[in-house]
Design a protein around this nucleic acid. Structure first.
Lengths: 217, 217
DNA sequence: CAACGCTTGTGAATTTGTGCACAAGCGGCC
DNA sequence: GGCCGCTTGTGCACAAATTCACAAGCGTTG
């Protein structure tokens, strides 16, 4: 009895945030409508992809005119679940954790930092931005009290799996992992990893093979 | 007259760093050989993908046995161009830039931070880790002196394109962009972007649609 | 030295994603 | 009201990536 479960391709979902951000910029300008071509430019893709991606969400464009900036932004936001800001916890308040805690982009793009946690008791109480660092033992209470669904891991790799287990036990269903460790979590918990060194190594590959690529014919 | 230009799929290249890291861990243990199955576990993929990926590099496994840990690590490192450490510059020494500057993962995985740069002259001279922050005006000199090929942008979005232009003008050929801005660069320059909020928003999508996905039949 | 268990390497099938090209349709203009 | 320019939405062909399934081959054991 499930209606038509509109299945949006993963590749499209990964691009929606970029559209969303581009539209936020457009809102700031006077622009009230935008064409797939312009949006492609702003988001860094091509027009055909933009149209196909947006078509999965529904028919929000007007032929001959383009897309209504404000409406489209709202639709994408709704699809991404950004209608109200998600509370997130950051675990591991080293240099990276501190940087994430003070990153303004989270607040402006749909997220609210509910708490900063660190296993090191000597860090507890010290302020980072407007929040104080709290001991990891308070995790369960915080997650429950604030209905936290997303956790960010910014610990060293060695501690990451342990923290992940605690997050899962506390009821967190989505994890963003900045440590280089590969996490194993039960079904139903989503994990996304960002490994800073991995990104550099990929660049290193293309840098290293630049000349190969030019060779042809 | 180009020999066989072994074209490695982009998707594979993006996974090579994960294999490389898993192998580094294996080297630390006693393990001298590893099967595609184990490696898949450690890197977070599946065995078939591992074997196919590795087959693009050459025939480094032994049937019935597995892959020689040390040799495979060396081969992947060579392919990624990690035989000696690349000098990188970090531009934009805010919270994120500072975190990147002190991130130990870069040093252990093939990169050396050649300089920290910031446009704000009041930051110049202040030490971050073992390096002093230098004004962006020194960029050209540094890139030339140290043969820097990779630049990391950790500025706010508004400054990112400007910094990218300067990096390109200085001769940097690969850019890792942590700002949310979309950069435009000439052909021949590689850009990779990591937008922290984008990753969270993708998680938000799956969190938000968790129930839809379970609905079936 | 033959048989066996184990693991790689890879063709082939399948799934997923991309890009083209054009019909459909809106809005303005004469 | 009809024509025209512009931009969406999408069917289709192609390309890339994933997964399956199995033959090839190594090493060990009796």
């Amino acid at each position: 009895m499930s209606k038509d479960v509109r299945r949006i391709p993963d590749a499209t979902i990964a691009r929606l945030p970029r559209y969303h951000r581009a539209l936020l910029e457009l809102v700031a300008t006077k622009a009230s409508t935008v064409s797939s071509d312009e949006l492609a430019d702003l988001a860094g893709f091509n027009a055909a992809k933009v149209r196909k991606d947006l078509s999965y969400l529904g028919t929000y464009g007007t032929r001959g005119v383009g897309y209504d900036v404000d409406n489209l932004r709202r639709q994408i936001g709704r699809e991404l679940g950004l209608t109200e800001s998600w509370p997130v916890v950051i675990v591991g308040i080293g240099n990276l954790g501190r940087a994430l805690a003070t990153y303004s982009g989270f607040a402006t793009r749909g997220f609210r930092i509910a708490a900063l946690l660190d296993a090191d008791p000597s860090k507890a109480g010290s302020p980072v931005g407007s929040l104080a660092v709290r001991p990891t033992s308070e995790l369960v209470a915080i997650v429950e009290a604030e209905q936290v669904a997303i956790g960010i891991i910014a610990t060293p790799g060695a501690a990451a799996q342990d923290v992940a287990d605690q997050l899962v036990a506390a009821g967190v269903k989505s994890i963003l992992n900045f440590s280089p460790a590969v996490l194993s979590v039960p079904d139903g918990v989503a994990v996304r990893g960002v490994d800073l060194a991995v990104e550099l190594q990929v660049l290193s590959y293309y840098q290293h093979h630049r000349d190969d690529l030019v060779v042809s014919a």
